[in-house]
Amino acid sequence: MLLIELENISKWFGERQVFENINLKLESPASLAIIGPNGCGKTTLLKIICGLIRPSRGKVRIKLDGQEVGKEAKRAFCSIVAPDLELYEELTALENLEFFTVLRDFKSSRAELNQKLEQVGLKDRGHEPVGSYSSGMKQRLKYAVALSVSPQVLILDEPSSNLDEEGIFLMEKLIENQKKDRLVILATNALKETQYAQQIFRLGN
């Protein structure tokens, strides 16, 4: 069982305070949607949770079966899909998947990697460079990469951006699967996307 605790998290960018004293507790299985107006710090909060940004004040604790995990392990628990996080365009989809799975200690065979691509509807496009993909296909591939390491926490920033109807359907299935026994944290401006989460956290006014 995984527990994420946010304790008095505050963030400033220079003089500007983005948010102050955020306290949150999430225990798997669960799903949370972070909503709020543009610029209220949704993406920043997601990046703080997964360890990409340091909070100005406060602490993020991740506990696995009651034991707090170290800084390095903390990063290994999270996968993120976000519009401002890109994959390597000069590599093929399969090469991207292989690269990230090896780095995260998931040694998968080519067949398993192909299966991951099949799950996001990119089965026959694995050998094409990502640079030749449409923005929707890139978003699908980001899901494949994020889920290829079976993350304990799946973090999604604007989860359906660039996806067509079929892509949204696939994404919903992936989120449903993840929600069953793990954690999903998403940030969105679209109220429709809050339906993927059981809890809602409002940031800003």
Binding site: E72, C78, D84, E86, Y88, F100, L103, V145
Partner: peptide, 16 residues
């Protein structure tokens, strides 16, 4: 520049 740094930070230890 290509915005690949963040996902790399999450995937590998700095020493690697």
């Amino acid at each position: 520049e290509r915005k690949t740094a963040s996902i790399l930070k999450l995937s590998a230890l700095p020493y690697h």
